[in-house]
Simulated assay, not measured.
Amino acid sequence: MTTRVDKKPGTTKRMLWMIGGVLLLIALIVGIKVLLVMRMIHSMPQPAPSTVSTTTARERPWQPALSAVGTLRAANGADLAMDVAGLVTAVNLKSGQDVKQGQVLLQMRDGDDVAQLHQLEAAAQLSQLTFERARKQLAAQAISKADYDTAAADLKGKQAAVAQQKVVVAKKQLRAPFTGRAGIITTSPGDYLSAGAMVVTVQQLDPLLVDFYVPQSELGRLQVGQTVNLKLDAYAGRRFSGKLSAINPKVDLGTRNVQVEATVPNHDKALTPGMFAKVSVDVGHEQRQLTLPQAAIVYNPYGDTVYVVQPSKGKDDKGRPLPATVKQTFVTLGETRGDQVEIVKGIKAGTVVVTSGQIKLKNDAPIVIDNRVQPADSANPAPQEH
């Protein structure tokens, strides 16, 4: 029994040495593997810096404005038609011609009406002579007051008939109701026109009015006399200016918008009624705001950000300067104007931010700056054809 008890501690000791050896071997293998992985990581080439363009955030003059879309219309415009039917004898108008107020544009056959007018005028002249004779005779008490009244009534009736016939004759002429420009006319002498048939349109082109709508929430910022700027697709490189002339005193119940009218000079007749225009109304005084190109903004559901450029710090193992890096920063945006956007909070003036190549970036990513090509950064961009 004593021999068995003496042998038991020796077996336990051997087992402990075996377990320790196995653990040491495992640790040695793991250490070797970690060392190999670390060497592989260090030997792997570093990712090349991303090429980006940058700009510097700076304060610029900023005119607060309300934007809308509007439609041009003539201050005076009418589609002219004849009151009566008849045969056209003369057309004193060419398509697109400028006309003066009262100018005869079209003449219908009116020989019978003019002849009847001359007959009525002759009767009125005779009645005038009779009335003058009756007035003198009444002064000499040669006729009664009743005869005088009869002569006076006859004169008024004849004069009224002449006036009525003049209206009939005038209806055979189409006159320009105001100074403007005529449209395309297709009527020719010899055509028969029905009453009410449209003959030609006349539009007063200077000045023009532009109608647009703004939300009722912006009504307090609008005042008659404010400057209104217009941009049209037909004149990409040109801006037209006018003045806000009227604000509708009633809000549309369906859209909760307010109709606004502006007057725009059109001395060279470049604008045409019915054209579509982008309208901008200057509201308030000019301010200075921190701006960036809209291309610099990374729009995300969780917030808008920009990549701020961090200067190079230190040198690598070979003594070369390390590349600059970027840091993603949240910003609060304000109004937009052309290619620019107002920065309310997040960065300060003088901050250098990335304007292109953001899709390849993350925090602390190295970059190489190449500013040979810059994104659009204009307050009043205009389309350019190449």
Rank of each mutant, 00 (worst) to 15 (best):
L193T: 03
A195F: 05
P49G: 10
V224N: 05
A75C: 04
K94W: 00
P311G: 06
V298H: 05
R60K: 15
L28Q: 08
Q310F: 03
G274V: 02
T355N: 06
V88C: 10
H267L: 08
L105C: 02
T71D: 04
V283Q: 08
L193P: 02
S194K: 15
D370A: 06
E218D: 15
V200I: 11
K250V: 15
G31T: 12
A176Y: 02
L361Y: 01
P9A: 10
M108L: 15
D110R: 14
Q226H: 12
Q101A: 15
D364N: 14
D6M: 08
T71S: 12
P45I: 12
P64V: 12
D147E: 15
K250N: 14
A74L: 03
V52P: 12
S217L: 08
M15H: 11
V354H: 02
A376Y: 09
A163G: 03
Y192H: 13
T89C: 07
Y148H: 11
Q340D: 01
G284L: 11
L209Q: 09
T187K: 00
E261H: 08
T332L: 13
L66P: 10
Q340W: 00
V354Q: 02
Q216N: 13
G21R: 05
A74P: 02
V84P: 04
V114M: 01
G220S: 15
T263C: 06
G20Y: 07
L117F: 07
A57W: 09
M1P: 07
E286V: 13
A382I: 13
A146G: 07
V199L: 00
M108V: 08
Y302V: 15
G357T: 06
E342R: 04
P177S: 07
